Structure formats: C-alpha cells, structure tokens
Measured scan of single mutants.
Amino acid sequence: RSRTNFTLEQLNELERLFDETHYPDAFMREELSQRLGLSEARVQVWFQNRRAKCRK
C-alpha cells in the first residue's frame, strides 16, 4: 500500500474533528470516512498518528 496523500479539505475536516475529540467512536469514524472518501482504517490511523504528534 502506498502512502495516502490527504487533500487540504480532508486535513481541515480531520483537524476540526480532532479539536472536538481525540478519540472518535466507530460511528464518527465511519461517517467521516464516507464523507471524505477515505477508508475507515485510514481515518483511524490518522487519529492515532495525530494523537502521537500531540504527545510530543
């Protein structure tokens, strides 16, 4: 699998939701992934990586 390149719109939406909650539930992830045209797994990994970045 190659690296996912997020569009600016996708990143803005992901960051907006991250500001609301660092741990979106499965329903939120599924709804977001459909809206952004990403797989739920990519959304989940993005949040994992974003939380790690936040801890640094």
Rank of each mutant, 00 (worst) to 15 (best):
2 S>N: 11
40 E>S: 10
49 N>K: 12
32 L>D: 00
32 L>P: 00
56 K>S: 12
3 R>D: 15
19 D>K: 10
34 Q>E: 09
12 N>K: 13
53 K>P: 08
18 F>S: 02
53 K>C: 08
37 G>M: 09
52 A>Q: 10
39 S>C: 05
17 L>C: 09
15 E>L: 01
45 V>A: 14
12 N>G: 12
24 P>W: 01
49 N>W: 05
4 T>V: 06
11 L>I: 11
49 N>M: 04
50 R>S: 02
4 T>P: 12
9 E>A: 11
43 V>G: 01
41 A>R: 13
9 E>T: 04
5 N>F: 06
34 Q>H: 07
31 E>R: 09
12 N>M: 06
43 V>F: 02
42 R>Y: 06
35 R>K: 13
37 G>A: 07
23 Y>G: 07
18 F>Q: 01
5 N>D: 14
36 L>K: 03
28 M>R: 13
5 N>E: 14
45 V>Q: 08
3 R>Y: 15
27 F>I: 12
32 L>A: 08
44 Q>H: 13
22 H>E: 15
14 L>P: 00
14 L>V: 00
55 R>Q: 14
30 E>P: 00
31 E>K: 11
53 K>Q: 14
22 H>K: 11
32 L>C: 07
53 K>N: 09
30 E>R: 13
33 S>H: 12
40 E>T: 05
28 M>V: 11
4 T>H: 10
47 F>A: 00
56 K>D: 07
23 Y>K: 08
19 D>W: 07
21 T>V: 07
45 V>M: 11
4 T>S: 12
37 G>K: 10
55 R>V: 08
2 S>A: 06
24 P>Q: 01
37 G>N: 13
52 A>C: 11
20 E>H: 12
41 A>I: 05
31 E>S: 11
24 P>G: 02
36 L>W: 06
31 E>T: 13
11 L>H: 15
36 L>G: 03
14 L>A: 00
24 P>K: 01
38 L>A: 14
28 M>W: 01
16 R>I: 05
56 K>T: 10
12 N>F: 04
29 R>H: 08
17 L>G: 04
40 E>L: 09
11 L>Q: 15
48 Q>P: 02
29 R>P: 02
13 E>W: 04
51 R>K: 06
24 P>D: 01
20 E>K: 15
19 D>Y: 03
37 G>H: 05
48 Q>S: 08
17 L>V: 12
24 P>N: 01
11 L>G: 05
19 D>L: 12
37 G>L: 03
33 S>Q: 11
49 N>E: 12
46 W>A: 00
41 A>W: 10
18 F>A: 01
35 R>N: 09
10 Q>I: 02
27 F>G: 14
34 Q>C: 04
56 K>W: 06
45 V>H: 08
22 H>P: 13
54 C>P: 11
9 E>I: 03
13 E>G: 10
33 S>A: 14
25 D>T: 11
27 F>N: 14
7 T>G: 02
51 R>I: 06
48 Q>E: 12
54 C>R: 06
24 P>A: 02
44 Q>A: 10
30 E>T: 13
26 A>R: 14
35 R>M: 04
20 E>C: 12
48 Q>K: 15
11 L>C: 05
29 R>D: 06
50 R>Y: 00
35 R>H: 02
44 Q>T: 09
45 V>P: 01
56 K>H: 10
48 Q>Y: 05
17 L>S: 07
41 A>K: 14
40 E>G: 13
53 K>T: 15
20 E>R: 14
28 M>Y: 04
10 Q>A: 08
7 T>H: 03
1 R>L: 07
24 P>T: 00
46 W>G: 01
34 Q>M: 06
31 E>H: 03
30 E>C: 08
19 D>R: 15
16 R>M: 04
9 E>Y: 05
21 T>H: 11
41 A>N: 04
37 G>C: 09
23 Y>R: 05
20 E>S: 09
46 W>F: 03
41 A>F: 04
36 L>R: 00
45 V>W: 09
40 E>N: 06
39 S>H: 06
44 Q>L: 12
37 G>P: 00
10 Q>P: 00
48 Q>D: 13
26 A>L: 10
43 V>S: 01
27 F>E: 14
46 W>K: 00
47 F>C: 02
7 T>Y: 01
49 N>Q: 12
15 E>M: 03
56 K>V: 11
53 K>W: 09
19 D>I: 13
48 Q>I: 01
10 Q>T: 02
34 Q>P: 01
23 Y>H: 15
32 L>T: 04
6 F>N: 04
42 R>S: 15
3 R>C: 11
44 Q>W: 03
15 E>S: 05
21 T>D: 12
55 R>P: 10
30 E>V: 06
7 T>S: 10
20 E>A: 12
51 R>A: 04
39 S>Q: 13
10 Q>E: 06
6 F>P: 04
48 Q>L: 05
28 M>I: 12
27 F>H: 12
53 K>G: 12
28 M>P: 06
14 L>S: 00
25 D>Y: 02
17 L>N: 07
30 E>I: 13
31 E>F: 00
45 V>R: 09
10 Q>V: 04
48 Q>M: 08
9 E>Q: 04
9 E>L: 05
22 H>T: 11
28 M>G: 04
21 T>P: 01
2 S>V: 09
21 T>E: 13
50 R>L: 01
19 D>N: 15
54 C>F: 12
53 K>Y: 05
24 P>M: 01
26 A>G: 09
33 S>D: 04
22 H>S: 09
2 S>R: 11
49 N>I: 03
39 S>M: 06
30 E>D: 08
27 F>D: 14
17 L>W: 05
46 W>E: 01
14 L>R: 00
30 E>Q: 13
50 R>T: 12
53 K>H: 05
56 K>P: 06
49 N>S: 09
14 L>F: 04
34 Q>K: 14
35 R>S: 06
21 T>W: 03
20 E>G: 06
9 E>F: 09
52 A>G: 08
32 L>H: 00
49 N>T: 15
54 C>G: 12
15 E>D: 14
52 A>M: 12
11 L>F: 08
23 Y>W: 09
43 V>D: 00
39 S>T: 13
24 P>L: 04
35 R>L: 04
45 V>D: 14
14 L>H: 00
4 T>E: 15
30 E>L: 13
28 M>N: 03
34 Q>I: 10
43 V>N: 01
42 R>F: 09
21 T>I: 07
7 T>D: 12
34 Q>T: 14
15 E>W: 00
54 C>H: 14
46 W>T: 01
12 N>Q: 13
21 T>Y: 08
22 H>V: 06
51 R>M: 09
17 L>A: 15
4 T>N: 15
1 R>K: 13
3 R>M: 13
19 D>A: 13
19 D>M: 13
55 R>N: 02
50 R>M: 07
15 E>A: 01
19 D>H: 08
20 E>L: 12
52 A>N: 13
25 D>I: 02
12 N>L: 09
18 F>Y: 08
31 E>W: 05
3 R>A: 11
40 E>Y: 02
35 R>F: 03
29 R>C: 11
22 H>Q: 14
4 T>A: 07
40 E>M: 07
32 L>N: 01
47 F>S: 01
11 L>A: 07
56 K>E: 14
25 D>P: 08
10 Q>L: 00
22 H>G: 07
53 K>E: 14
31 E>Q: 09
7 T>W: 03
33 S>Y: 10
18 F>D: 01
34 Q>W: 03
3 R>W: 06
54 C>T: 07
35 R>E: 05
54 C>Q: 15
13 E>A: 13
47 F>Q: 02
29 R>V: 09
51 R>N: 02
20 E>N: 15
44 Q>P: 01
31 E>Y: 00
23 Y>A: 07
6 F>K: 06
22 H>C: 09
5 N>Y: 05
54 C>S: 13
25 D>S: 11
37 G>I: 01
